[in-house]
């Protein structure tokens, strides 16, 4: 989508019309009639460049986590392609798949659950090395583990090697998870809400660490979060998802300040600001996020959209249009909203 935009950085991963439908078996529908699908991810495309962080934001149930799981092949896509080094990862098998998994790593939300409580830090971080047969001797591997721990800010690393997860604080555990992801020198990392379980004072440290590691190793991230302020801090580009679709994607501050999709506008106006003098503008969007089983016809957002027009929005699904270089919006009135600057009008509470 944006490969043509004069962005000459190397594309690490290219997602083309990726879809994931989960089949539901409700009662007797199992036996006859059309199968029912939950359209978790429904045709998304983007490119991730070297050294780039893309923030995926959206409400729960918008498909951002499923996207992350598809990219790491923890789920198999229903259709569409994820192209990594010239190959579609959906078709990888056996050795190729294992090689791919070496190149992509994931950091999970809850460091209390993502670490094995019976493994020491050393064993946790060394396991990926053993799985992929890296390092000739035990001492080599210990050295790699120590390097990874120090990269993750656990210094002196030797002190942490024999500790168990319960002996670490939340922030330290997440650093171990980061070290475990880094030890394989992956080509990209999917981070699924990596800081949302952490306390404020520790969160900033983990976020800074992730940014520093990106600068040091040029590893791109897909950073999945529901917190737009965190996404803004972390990412170069932001993709806003709604019901399995990317509704807006562009440079971070372009999306934050010049957004053109009514959903993005509602989402951003709902974010509380740590400033008591800030006047809170509020965009009323109606209702709650509909179930991804019975999607509305036309634009998925129209039943909640304050600007929806009958006859257009509820009939045709809007394509992603480029409103400014590198800034794509899926709305029938994207150009109009972009020009008129819908960010300006605020309603006082």
């Amino acid at each position: 989508m944006d490969a043509e935009n004069g962005d000459n950085r190397k594309v690490v991963i290219s997602v083309r019309n990726l879809k994931k439908y989960f089949e539901l078996h409700i009662g007797m529908f199992k036996f006859w009639g059309e199968p029912i699908y939950v359209k978790a991810v429904d045709g998304i495309s983007f490119n991730l460049h070297e050294g780039e962080i893309i923030g995926m934001v959206g409400e729960s149930g918008c498909g951002k986590t499923t996207t992350g799981r598809l990219l790491t092949r923890l789920e198999n896509p229903t259709s569409g392609q994820v192209i990594f080094e010239g190959k579609n990862i959906a078709e990888l098998k056996g050795k190729d798949l294992k090689f791919y998994r070496r190149n992509v790593q994931m950091i999970f939300q809850d460091p209390y659950e993502s670490l094995n409580p019976r493994f020491t830090v050393q064993k946790t971080v060394m396991e990926p090395l053993l799985v992929h047969g890296i390092g000739d001797t035990y001492d080599d591997r210990v050295e790699l583990v120590i390097k990874a721990l120090e990269d993750a800010g656990l210094r002196p690393a030797e002190e942490y090697l024999s500790r168990f997860p319960h002996e670490l604080s939340g922030g330290q555990r997440q650093r171990v998870a980061i070290a475990r992801a880094l030890v394989l020198r992956p080509k990209f990392i999917v981070a699924d809400e990596p800081v949302s379980m952490l306390d404020v004072s520790i969160r900033a440290g983990v976020m800074n660490l992730m940014l520093d590691l990106r600068d040091k190793y040029n590893i791109p991230y897909i950073f999945i979060t529901h917190d737009i302020a965190v996404a803004r801090y972390m990412s170069d580009r932001i993709a806003v998802m709604y019901l399995g679709k990317i509704v807006e994607i562009g440079e971070t501050d372009e999306v934050i300040f010049n957004h053109a999709h009514p959903y993005t506008k509602a989402l951003i106006s709902a974010v509380p600001v740590p400033d008591p003098e800030h006047k809170h503008g509020r965009v009323e969007i109606k209702g709650e996020i509909p179930s991804p089983i019975n999607l509305p016809k036309g634009c998925r957002f129209w039943p909640r959209c304050p600007y929806a027009k009958k006859g257009i929005c509820d009939v045709k699904e809007p394509p992603l249009k480029e409103v400014a270089p590198g800034h794509f919006v899926a709305c029938h009135f994207a150009e109009k909203f972009y020009e008129e600057d819908i960010t300006e009008e605020t309603v006082e509470v």
Partner: peptide, 24 residues
Amino acid sequence: EALLNAFPSIKGEKKRLKAIPGSP
């Protein structure tokens, strides 16, 4: 001050957050 500096905002310029060293 430390708490406020550790909090990202969607308003204003993007500044580097300052983590509070150590833990409670």
